[in-house]
Design a protein around this nucleic acid. Structure first.
Lengths: 234, 234
DNA sequence: CATATTTTTTGATCTAAATCATATTTTTGG
DNA sequence: CCAAAAATATGATTTAGATCAAAAAATATG
């Protein structure tokens, strides 16, 4: 569990203690739930391979994607306060997850200051990442949202040592559209346009980013910005 | 410091220790900054009275509101990961804040399990609250967003023992619009409409909710819902 | 307290993206 | 391997809300 262990810098004994907590793995088939809204919260889940989507149902029964989790990421942090999961987590492909009993983790973090710090850090990161999503949804047009989404995935894969320019788009167009607050047709149209102008290339679920700069430019340059070049280099 | 102390249930010694951490108060005049983006993170801030807006600047220089903080709420949780504040926090009125040195709080929470738990809880709540905002922005129309916003404020005041139906709208229309991803004109128009139909009454910065049910109905009933009554009672 | 400045409101027009309508491609499952 | 179902793509039309424009109200300031 990269996110929990690596950045922490524990000694051998501490590492062993933490390791003993996170022994239990599970393989989830595509389309299966890891947890559902209202299930009582006992574990955090770390993704060892594969990917997961998390969504909530709004009061009027519509689906709202709240997160995509990729390899190395931790699910369930939003459930700590209420001791119930708030969303439904579904595997987007065959996914290996690691179960982390939260109560025991909490106990252990009392004894290992660096672990407590890492937990605070993880949760704070999650807050920031949701804030960023709010910013995209509130202020950006469809093309900017999609470009930002692709760059975000690219970054996250890159951070885990995978290619930043070629990766698996495991979520459907519908899921992406929902996540970004757009219509499926809009997502499809923009992906087509980006393909046409050779910014990306898509083969089924596989995406290759051909012109990363172009994506950055789309994201960074507001439509009222009269000096795109300067904005880009700033 | 309701949020930090009350729900925790500490013994006398622990309470004293916590109390000694959160002695320092400060009065902030309207329009003054509590922190700015990039300032190094040392304290969490709890609001004792007044209110604060938090916003970020996007890469193309636009303002994006990320939060409004009311009395009893804690600011700065998003800065823990990076040790830098990510947003600008500005007082919306004369505001009394309480400074909480985070490093010491972290140390203390190693010794007081209930305090650690409360911190996890607070951060988890913040994650959930941002997720909710994402849901509003992604799926709701202008009227629903504004109704949800008013109900959210109402709830938060109510939780602290204030009136749920009459409160101070300390943020400007522009701030609200920005927060909800709308144009000022749209916010103004909808507030006018709600006033006209006696759902709310606004006198300068003071708002009175006359028909709470109506607001709930606006929020809960999707436009495609053919049975608003049923949806409302579900 | 009178004038300047900012904020809010209201109206008219325009546009990005939703919706509607099909067609095409991909996936599923017998 | 083929038919049915699901997902994706593309074109035409509509619309919610942005933008533009201007007045009215509130607030600040000398």
């Amino acid at each position: 569990m990269a996110q929990l262990c690596l950045p922490v810098g524990l000694n051998v004994t501490e590492l062993k203690q933490l390791d003993s907590l996170i022994q239990k793995h599970r393989l989830i088939q595509k389309g299966r739930f890891i947890y559902r809204t209202g299930d009582s919260f006992t574990h955090l889940y770390a993704i060892r391979s594969g990917s997961v989507k998390a969504y909530t149902l709004t009061s009027d029964g519509q689906i709202q994607m709240t997160d995509f989790f990729l390899l190395g990421e931790i699910m369930g942090l939003d459930a700590i306060a209420t001791k119930r999961y708030h969303s439904n987590a579904v595997a987007l492909q065959t996914t290996s997850i690691c179960e982390i009993p939260f109560h025991q983790l909490e106990q252990l973090s009392l004894k290992i200051p660096a672990l407590q710090q890492q937990l605070f850090r993880l949760m704070s990161q999650e807050i920031t990442s949701e804030q960023n999503l709010v910013t995209w949804l509130g202020r950006k047009n469809a093309e900017q949202r999609l470009a930002a989404f692709l760059l975000n995935l690219s970054n996250r894969y890159h951070q885990r040592g995978f290619s930043a320019t070629e990766f698996h788009l495991s979520m459907s167009r519908t899921d992406i559209a929902n996540y970004l607050g757009l219509a499926v047709e809009t997502v499809s149209r923009i992906l087509s346009k980006l393909s046409e102008q050779k910014t990306i290339a898509i083969d089924k679920k596989f995406i290759r980013i051909l012109d990363m700069d172009c994506l950055h430019q789309i994201v960074n340059v507001g439509k009222h910005d009269s000096l795109p070049c300067i904005a880009h280099h700033a």
